[in-house]
């Protein structure tokens, strides 16, 4: 069975001031099957949002997708014509954004914002799309849906707006839904409701979901598979149980260690990862996490580890760390030089 989405060796470049290029997303490969939930986790600037924008071919200027393929149902997205792309967006794929305050048009009634894509993609008439919009609002749990169609976004609370956004995104029953930090701007209590709703919609429509977050808690509770990104690369991937239960990469471990566990006494100081991610364009040789890594050995500073199977032999779990899996150094590019 071909995967719904098959991304391989995706590279997004940004020009640097010194005429060079900076790989903001570097050789990222992953697949998403129908109905599967894939989480991408990483700190700010790790390239997780940019990866999703690249999938939609919406990389902000002056960035460019310089290489890699994105196959959607076997078709090359990077080769779509403008017209095909427009048809594909919204009907086959859709996005939910971080801030529902700004991702809805403040000057347009929400009914119109929902019916817009129904009319564009499904060719429904005004009356038909209105009926459908009411159904959609009811499905995402907005009470009194019919009368709320004529409200402006300003009349909704944050959680309600995110529900509206989900209604808009799922209007044409897309097969792939990309949710870019959909709960970050919301209250904790509302977060759970929105995740439940996403979960419900994805199950009902058998939609593949890519959930992007910096919150491992959110990701691990929602996703089947997790990709951990650092400095534009995937440093570890595996199932949610593998990543949370038996993390291999020191970065993943550090991320997990920085989460408070309610079962243990609360420490006076929370654990953090010292240092900061490498600055754009100042990537040194070797593993990009090495300068912040407690376990780093000399080889880490010279050899850029490849993503390889882990030594614990769990199927599907991969790590890019030469210390955790020596094979990562063996398969690294230019490893012979070391």
């Amino acid at each position: 069975m071909t995967a719904l989405l098959d991304v391989s060796d995706l590279v997004v470049d940004f020009p640097t001031a010194s005429d060079g290029v900076f790989h903001a997303v570097d050789s990222v490969s992953f697949t998403v099957n129908a109905g599967e939930r894939v989480g991408i986790v990483g700190e700010s600037g790790s390239g997780k949002s940019l990866t999703s924008q690249a999938l939609m071919r919406l990389v902000p200027s002056p960035g460019t997708v310089s290489s890699g393929t994105v196959l959607f149902d076997g078709a090359e997205v990077m080769g779509f014509s403008a017209k095909k792309l427009q048809k594909w967006r919204g009907s086959q794929t859709a996005m939910v954004f971080q801030d529902p305050m700004s991702s809805l048009n403040p000057l347009m009634r929400i009914g119109r914002q929902i019916t817009e894509s129904l009319q564009e993609h499904l060719g429904l008439s005004k009356a038909e799309s209105r009926v459908r919009a009411i159904e959609l609002l009811q499905r995402v749990g907005i009470p009194d849906a019919e009368s709320r169609l004529s409200d402006f976004p300003g009349a909704f609370s944050g959680g309600m707006r995110q529900r509206v956004c989900i209604a808009i995104a799922t209007a044409c029953s897309p097969r792939l839904l990309i949710a870019d930090e959909p709960t970050t701007a919301l209250d904790v209590t509302v977060q759970a409701q929105v995740l439940d709703l996403l979960d419900h919609m994805a199950t009902e429509l058998n939609t593949g979901v890519i959930l992007i977050s910096h919150d491992l808690g959110v990701i691990s509770s929602f996703c089947d598979r997790i990709l951990v990104m650092y400095a534009g690369r995937i440093v570890e991937e595996g199932t949610a149980e593998q990543i949370v239960g038996d993390p291999q990469h020191p970065y993943t471990r550090a991320l997990l260690a920085s989460i408070l566990k309610l079962s243990e006494p609360i420490p006076r100081r929370l654990k953090s990862i010292s240092g900061a991610p490498p600055l754009a364009g100042r990537r040194a040789s070797g593993c990009s996490f090495a300068p912040r890594c407690a376990l780093a050995v000399d080889a880490c500073l010279t050899i850029d580890p490849a993503l390889v199977d882990t030594v614990n032999g769990r199927p599907g779990q991969k790590v890019a760390c030469g210390v955790a899996a020596p094979a990562a150094f063996e398969f690294a590019e230019g490893a012979t030089a070391a």
């Binding site: 427009q86 859709a94 996005m95 809805l104 048009n105 347009m108 894509s117 564009e120 808009i168």
Partner: peptide
């Protein structure tokens, strides 16, 4: 056009004309 609701309407596959006419012009 950098505002999120315009980007959001691009991800919904709306035509350039609808985005300019319905999402940008009213502002």
């Amino acid at each position: 056009k950098e505002r999120e609701f315009v980007v959001a309407s691009q991800t919904l596959g709306l035509s350039h004309r609808s985005i300019m006419w319905r999402h940008i012009l009213p502002h």
